[in-house]
Protein backbone atom coordinates (compact mmCIF):
# COMPACT_ATOMS: atom_id res chain seq x y z
CA UNK A 1 0.00 0.00 0.00
CA UNK A 2 2.91 2.37 -0.47
CA UNK A 3 3.46 4.96 -3.13
CA UNK A 4 2.13 8.20 -4.36
CA UNK A 5 -1.47 6.99 -4.62
CA UNK A 6 -1.56 6.22 -0.92
CA UNK A 7 -0.04 9.58 -0.18
CA UNK A 8 -2.82 11.33 -2.05
CA UNK A 9 -5.41 9.24 -0.21
CA UNK A 10 -3.77 10.00 3.12
CA UNK A 11 -3.72 13.70 2.34
CA UNK A 12 -7.39 13.66 1.36
CA UNK A 13 -8.42 11.73 4.48
CA UNK A 14 -6.38 14.10 6.64
CA UNK A 15 -8.11 17.05 5.03
CA UNK A 16 -11.54 15.46 5.42
CA UNK A 17 -10.96 14.59 9.07
CA UNK A 18 -9.74 17.99 10.21
CA UNK A 19 -11.28 20.38 7.71
CA UNK A 20 -14.11 19.14 5.55
CA UNK A 21 -16.29 17.25 8.03
CA UNK A 22 -16.06 19.78 10.90
CA UNK A 23 -16.59 22.71 8.54
CA UNK A 24 -19.57 21.07 6.89
CA UNK A 25 -21.42 20.51 10.14
CA UNK A 26 -20.43 23.92 11.55
CA UNK A 27 -21.52 25.53 8.29
CA UNK A 28 -24.92 23.84 8.47
CA UNK A 29 -25.46 25.19 11.99
CA UNK A 30 -24.46 28.69 10.93
CA UNK A 31 -26.65 28.51 7.83
CA UNK A 32 -29.75 27.68 9.88
CA UNK A 33 -29.00 30.54 12.27
CA UNK A 34 -28.34 32.96 9.43
CA UNK A 35 -31.61 32.08 7.66
CA UNK A 36 -33.46 33.00 10.86
CA UNK A 37 -31.66 36.34 11.12
CA UNK A 38 -32.19 37.08 7.46
CA UNK A 39 -35.95 36.33 7.58
CA UNK A 40 -36.44 38.70 10.49
CA UNK A 41 -34.37 41.27 8.66
CA UNK A 42 -36.32 40.88 5.44
CA UNK A 43 -39.73 41.29 7.04
CA UNK A 44 -39.18 43.34 10.18
CA UNK A 45 -36.20 45.31 8.85
CA UNK A 46 -33.80 45.01 11.75
CA UNK A 47 -30.78 42.94 12.79
CA UNK A 48 -31.93 40.83 15.70
CA UNK A 49 -29.19 40.76 18.33
CA UNK A 50 -31.23 38.40 20.48
CA UNK A 51 -31.06 35.56 17.94
CA UNK A 52 -28.06 33.84 19.52
CA UNK A 53 -29.64 33.82 22.95
CA UNK A 54 -32.97 32.63 21.57
CA UNK A 55 -30.99 29.69 20.15
CA UNK A 56 -29.64 29.06 23.64
CA UNK A 57 -33.16 29.20 25.08
CA UNK A 58 -34.44 26.63 22.58
CA UNK A 59 -31.52 24.35 23.28
CA UNK A 60 -32.19 24.64 26.99
CA UNK A 61 -35.76 23.37 26.54
CA UNK A 62 -34.43 20.51 24.42
CA UNK A 63 -32.08 19.59 27.25
CA UNK A 64 -34.82 19.66 29.88
CA UNK A 65 -37.15 17.50 27.77
CA UNK A 66 -34.25 15.15 26.99
CA UNK A 67 -33.56 14.73 30.70
CA UNK A 68 -37.25 14.05 31.28
CA UNK A 69 -37.38 11.43 28.53
CA UNK A 70 -34.17 9.82 29.76
CA UNK A 71 -35.57 9.53 33.27
CA UNK A 72 -38.48 7.53 31.81
CA UNK A 73 -36.04 5.42 29.86
CA UNK A 74 -37.33 6.66 26.51
CA UNK A 75 -34.66 6.98 23.85
CA UNK A 76 -33.95 6.57 20.17
CA UNK A 77 -31.36 3.81 20.43
CA UNK A 78 -28.25 4.86 18.56
CA UNK A 79 -29.66 8.32 17.84
CA UNK A 80 -29.65 11.08 20.46
CA UNK A 81 -32.84 11.47 22.51
CA UNK A 82 -32.67 15.20 21.82
CA UNK A 83 -34.20 14.62 18.39
CA UNK A 84 -37.35 13.39 20.12
CA UNK A 85 -37.35 16.42 22.38
CA UNK A 86 -36.86 18.88 19.53
CA UNK A 87 -40.55 19.39 18.56
CA UNK A 88 -41.48 20.37 22.13
CA UNK A 89 -38.54 22.75 22.26
CA UNK A 90 -39.56 24.32 18.96
CA UNK A 91 -43.02 25.06 20.38
CA UNK A 92 -41.45 26.59 23.48
CA UNK A 93 -39.13 28.77 21.43
CA UNK A 94 -41.98 29.95 19.22
CA UNK A 95 -43.93 30.88 22.35
CA UNK A 96 -40.94 32.88 23.61
CA UNK A 97 -40.40 34.87 20.41
CA UNK A 98 -44.13 35.58 20.03
CA UNK A 99 -44.18 36.76 23.63
CA UNK A 100 -41.27 39.11 22.91
CA UNK A 101 -43.03 40.38 19.81
CA UNK A 102 -46.22 41.14 21.74
CA UNK A 103 -44.50 42.78 24.71
CA UNK A 104 -41.58 44.51 23.04
CA UNK A 105 -41.47 44.78 19.27
CA UNK A 106 -45.16 45.33 18.52
CA UNK A 107 -45.10 48.67 20.34
CA UNK A 108 -42.33 50.01 18.11
CA UNK A 109 -44.04 48.65 15.02
CA UNK A 110 -47.23 50.55 15.88
CA UNK A 111 -45.14 53.69 16.44
CA UNK A 112 -43.30 53.10 13.16
CA UNK A 113 -39.96 53.54 14.98
CA UNK A 114 -36.63 53.67 13.20
CA UNK A 115 -34.89 50.30 12.65
CA UNK A 116 -32.13 51.25 15.07
CA UNK A 117 -34.68 51.48 17.89
CA UNK A 118 -35.65 47.86 17.24
CA UNK A 119 -31.97 47.04 17.33
CA UNK A 120 -31.51 48.57 20.80
CA UNK A 121 -34.66 46.83 21.97
CA UNK A 122 -33.31 43.51 20.68
CA UNK A 123 -30.20 44.09 22.81
CA UNK A 124 -32.49 44.38 25.83
CA UNK A 125 -34.26 41.18 24.80
CA UNK A 126 -30.87 39.52 24.42
CA UNK A 127 -29.97 40.28 28.05
CA UNK A 128 -33.30 39.12 29.38
CA UNK A 129 -33.08 35.84 27.48
CA UNK A 130 -29.51 35.46 28.60
CA UNK A 131 -30.60 35.92 32.22
CA UNK A 132 -33.53 33.53 31.84
CA UNK A 133 -31.33 30.77 30.46
CA UNK A 134 -28.90 31.15 33.35
CA UNK A 135 -31.75 31.30 35.83
CA UNK A 136 -33.20 28.00 34.65
CA UNK A 137 -30.16 25.92 33.75
CA UNK A 138 -27.18 27.88 35.11
CA UNK A 139 -24.01 28.98 33.32
CA UNK A 140 -22.32 25.57 33.21
CA UNK A 141 -21.27 23.45 30.30
CA UNK A 142 -23.73 20.62 29.50
CA UNK A 143 -23.34 17.67 27.19
CA UNK A 144 -26.66 16.11 26.30
CA UNK A 145 -25.81 13.95 23.32
CA UNK A 146 -26.53 10.30 24.08
CA UNK A 147 -26.74 7.20 21.93
CA UNK A 148 -23.80 6.24 19.75
CA UNK A 149 -21.02 8.79 19.54
CA UNK A 150 -19.26 7.66 16.41
CA UNK A 151 -20.17 6.22 13.06
CA UNK A 152 -16.52 5.55 12.34
CA UNK A 153 -13.69 6.03 14.81
CA UNK A 154 -10.36 7.27 13.55
CA UNK A 155 -8.45 4.25 14.83
CA UNK A 156 -10.97 1.79 13.43
CA UNK A 157 -10.78 3.56 10.10
CA UNK A 158 -7.01 3.25 10.06
CA UNK A 159 -7.20 -0.45 10.82
CA UNK A 160 -9.89 -0.99 8.21
CA UNK A 161 -8.13 0.82 5.38
CA UNK A 162 -4.51 0.36 6.36
CA UNK A 163 -3.91 4.08 5.78
CA UNK A 164 -1.82 6.08 8.21
CA UNK A 165 -4.49 8.75 8.55
CA UNK A 166 -7.85 8.12 10.16
CA UNK A 167 -11.26 9.61 9.50
CA UNK A 168 -13.66 9.94 12.37
CA UNK A 169 -17.29 10.62 11.70
CA UNK A 170 -19.57 11.46 14.58
CA UNK A 171 -23.25 10.68 14.65
CA UNK A 172 -24.04 14.28 15.55
CA UNK A 173 -22.18 15.58 12.51
CA UNK A 174 -24.27 13.47 10.17
CA UNK A 175 -27.49 14.37 11.99
CA UNK A 176 -26.63 18.06 11.74
CA UNK A 177 -26.24 17.93 8.00
CA UNK A 178 -29.33 15.77 7.45
CA UNK A 179 -31.60 17.84 9.69
CA UNK A 180 -30.32 21.06 8.15
CA UNK A 181 -31.13 19.80 4.65
CA UNK A 182 -34.64 18.77 5.73
CA UNK A 183 -35.29 22.09 7.49
CA UNK A 184 -34.06 24.18 4.59
CA UNK A 185 -36.03 22.13 2.05
CA UNK A 186 -39.19 22.55 4.10
CA UNK A 187 -38.58 26.28 4.42
CA UNK A 188 -38.17 26.79 0.70
CA UNK A 189 -41.21 24.71 -0.05
CA UNK A 190 -43.12 26.95 2.35
CA UNK A 191 -41.80 30.21 0.93
CA UNK A 192 -42.32 29.26 -2.69
CA UNK A 193 -45.42 27.07 -2.74
CA UNK A 194 -47.80 28.20 0.02
CA UNK A 195 -49.94 31.33 -0.04
CA UNK A 196 -48.55 32.56 3.27
CA UNK A 197 -45.01 32.02 2.10
CA UNK A 198 -45.63 33.95 -1.07
CA UNK A 199 -47.26 36.73 0.95
CA UNK A 200 -44.15 36.87 3.14
CA UNK A 201 -41.86 37.20 0.17
CA UNK A 202 -44.04 39.89 -1.33
CA UNK A 203 -44.07 41.79 1.96
CA UNK A 204 -40.33 41.51 2.25
CA UNK A 205 -39.77 42.75 -1.32
CA UNK A 206 -42.12 45.70 -1.20
CA UNK A 207 -44.11 46.45 1.90
CA UNK A 208 -46.41 49.10 0.44
CA UNK A 209 -47.31 47.08 -2.61
CA UNK A 210 -48.01 44.05 -0.45
CA UNK A 211 -50.29 46.03 1.83
CA UNK A 212 -52.15 47.41 -1.19
CA UNK A 213 -52.78 43.93 -2.47
CA UNK A 214 -54.50 43.03 0.79
CA UNK A 215 -51.81 41.07 2.66
CA UNK A 216 -52.38 41.10 6.41
CA UNK A 217 -49.14 42.49 7.90
CA UNK A 218 -49.77 41.11 11.40
CA UNK A 219 -50.08 37.63 10.02
CA UNK A 220 -46.89 37.97 8.00
CA UNK A 221 -45.01 39.19 11.07
CA UNK A 222 -46.34 36.34 13.20
CA UNK A 223 -45.39 33.71 10.63
CA UNK A 224 -41.93 35.26 10.38
CA UNK A 225 -41.41 34.97 14.10
CA UNK A 226 -42.65 31.38 14.08
CA UNK A 227 -40.17 30.48 11.34
CA UNK A 228 -37.34 32.38 13.02
CA UNK A 229 -38.04 30.69 16.36
CA UNK A 230 -38.19 27.24 14.77
CA UNK A 231 -34.93 27.74 12.90
CA UNK A 232 -33.21 29.21 15.97
CA UNK A 233 -34.24 26.23 18.08
CA UNK A 234 -33.09 23.68 15.50
CA UNK A 235 -29.80 25.48 14.90
CA UNK A 236 -29.12 25.83 18.62
CA UNK A 237 -29.90 22.20 19.37
CA UNK A 238 -27.76 20.90 16.53
CA UNK A 239 -24.86 23.09 17.65
CA UNK A 240 -25.26 21.94 21.23
CA UNK A 241 -25.44 18.29 20.19
CA UNK A 242 -22.37 18.53 18.03
CA UNK A 243 -20.26 20.51 20.50
CA UNK A 244 -21.76 21.20 23.90
CA UNK A 245 -24.24 23.57 25.44
CA UNK A 246 -22.87 26.59 27.26
CA UNK A 247 -25.03 29.74 27.36
CA UNK A 248 -22.00 31.98 26.95
CA UNK A 249 -20.94 30.52 23.59
CA UNK A 250 -24.29 31.26 21.97
CA UNK A 251 -23.67 34.97 22.32
CA UNK A 252 -20.42 34.53 20.45
CA UNK A 253 -22.21 32.67 17.64
CA UNK A 254 -23.95 35.92 16.79
CA UNK A 255 -20.98 37.33 14.89
CA UNK A 256 -20.42 34.48 12.42
CA UNK A 257 -24.20 34.27 11.94
CA UNK A 258 -24.44 37.96 11.09
CA UNK A 259 -21.43 37.63 8.83
CA UNK A 260 -23.07 34.72 7.02
CA UNK A 261 -26.31 36.66 6.55
CA UNK A 262 -24.52 39.72 5.19
CA UNK A 263 -22.12 37.79 2.96
CA UNK A 264 -25.09 36.05 1.36
CA UNK A 265 -26.99 39.30 0.94
CA UNK A 266 -29.12 40.20 3.92
CA UNK A 267 -32.82 39.45 3.49
CA UNK A 268 -32.02 36.59 1.07
CA UNK A 269 -32.56 33.08 2.50
CA UNK A 270 -30.54 31.32 -0.21
CA UNK A 271 -27.73 33.77 0.35
CA UNK A 272 -27.77 33.10 4.10
CA UNK A 273 -27.26 29.39 3.54
CA UNK A 274 -24.37 29.88 1.17
CA UNK A 275 -23.00 32.55 3.50
CA UNK A 276 -23.06 30.04 6.37
CA UNK A 277 -20.86 27.59 4.49
CA UNK A 278 -18.56 30.35 3.18
CA UNK A 279 -17.93 31.57 6.71
CA UNK A 280 -17.47 28.09 8.20
CA UNK A 281 -15.10 26.84 5.51
CA UNK A 282 -13.04 30.03 5.55
CA UNK A 283 -12.74 29.86 9.32
CA UNK A 284 -11.48 26.29 9.34
CA UNK A 285 -9.38 26.44 6.18
CA UNK A 286 -7.61 29.70 6.94
CA UNK A 287 -6.47 28.53 10.36
CA UNK A 288 -5.58 24.97 9.39
CA UNK A 289 -1.86 24.19 9.35
CA UNK A 290 -1.11 22.56 6.01
CA UNK A 291 2.29 21.16 6.97
CA UNK A 292 1.25 17.52 7.23
CA UNK A 293 -1.09 17.79 4.25
CA UNK A 294 1.65 19.12 2.01
CA UNK A 295 4.12 16.59 3.34
CA UNK A 296 2.02 13.85 1.79
CA UNK A 297 1.67 15.61 -1.53
CA UNK A 298 5.12 17.09 -2.05
CA UNK A 299 8.36 15.21 -2.63
CA UNK A 300 10.36 14.71 0.58
CA UNK A 301 12.96 17.38 -0.16
CA UNK A 302 10.27 20.00 -0.64
CA UNK A 303 8.43 19.24 2.59
CA UNK A 304 7.68 22.48 4.42
CA UNK A 305 9.50 23.26 7.64
CA UNK A 306 6.98 25.75 9.01
CA UNK A 307 3.39 24.97 9.93
CA UNK A 308 2.08 26.50 6.69
CA UNK A 309 -0.71 28.20 8.54
CA UNK A 310 -2.30 31.21 6.90
CA UNK A 311 -3.51 32.73 10.15
CA UNK A 312 -2.94 31.59 13.71
CA UNK A 313 -5.93 29.92 15.41
CA UNK A 314 -5.89 32.81 17.87
CA UNK A 315 -7.73 34.82 15.28
CA UNK A 316 -10.12 32.09 14.22
CA UNK A 317 -13.25 34.01 15.08
CA UNK A 318 -11.86 37.11 13.41
CA UNK A 319 -12.10 35.41 10.02
CA UNK A 320 -15.87 35.82 9.87
CA UNK A 321 -15.39 39.48 10.50
CA UNK A 322 -12.63 39.88 7.95
CA UNK A 323 -14.94 38.31 5.38
CA UNK A 324 -17.62 40.74 6.48
CA UNK A 325 -15.33 43.73 5.97
CA UNK A 326 -14.18 42.47 2.58
CA UNK A 327 -17.78 42.06 1.46
CA UNK A 328 -18.68 45.51 2.75
CA UNK A 329 -15.76 47.00 0.83
CA UNK A 330 -16.07 45.08 -2.41
CA UNK A 331 -19.74 44.18 -2.76
CA UNK A 332 -21.89 45.63 0.02
CA UNK A 333 -25.02 43.93 -1.30
CA UNK A 334 -23.62 40.47 -0.64
CA UNK A 335 -23.63 37.55 -3.05
CA UNK A 336 -27.37 37.74 -3.69
CA UNK A 337 -28.16 41.45 -3.72
CA UNK A 338 -29.66 42.12 -0.30
CA UNK A 339 -30.90 45.39 1.11
CA UNK A 340 -28.15 47.66 2.36
CA UNK A 341 -29.32 51.23 2.24
Amino acid sequence: MDGFGTDILNALILFANFVFVPALSYGSQLALGAVGVTLVYGVLRFANFAHGDVMAFGTMITIFVTWGLQSYGIGLGPLPTALLALPVAILGTIALVLFYDKTVFQFYRRNRSAPVIYLVASVGVMFITNGLVRLFIGPDDRRFADGERFIIKARAFKKMTGLSEGLSLQVTQVITVVVAIIAVAALFWFLNKTRTGKAMRAYSDNEDLALLSGINPDRVVMVTWILAGTLACIAGTLYGLDKSFKPFTYFHLLLPIFAAAIVGGIGQPVGAIIGGYVVAFSEVMATYAYKKFLKYLLPDDMAPSTLMQFLSTDYKFAISFIILVLVLLIRPTGIFRGRVY
Binding site: F18, P22, Y26, T249, V284, T287, Y288, L307
Partner: peptide, 17 residues
Protein backbone atom coordinates in the same frame (compact mmCIF):
# COMPACT_ATOMS: atom_id res chain seq x y z
CA UNK B 1 -12.18 29.24 27.72
CA UNK B 2 -15.88 28.97 27.08
CA UNK B 3 -15.69 28.19 23.39
CA UNK B 4 -17.73 25.26 22.22
CA UNK B 5 -15.41 24.06 19.52
CA UNK B 6 -11.69 23.38 19.67
CA UNK B 7 -11.26 21.34 16.51
CA UNK B 8 -9.33 24.08 14.69
CA UNK B 9 -6.85 24.39 17.56
CA UNK B 10 -6.39 20.62 17.69
CA UNK B 11 -5.97 20.42 13.92
CA UNK B 12 -3.27 23.09 13.94
CA UNK B 13 -1.50 21.48 16.90
CA UNK B 14 -1.47 18.03 15.36
CA UNK B 15 -0.21 19.34 12.04
CA UNK B 16 3.13 19.99 13.70
CA UNK B 17 3.66 16.24 13.66
Amino acid sequence: NGKADYSAEVAALSAGG
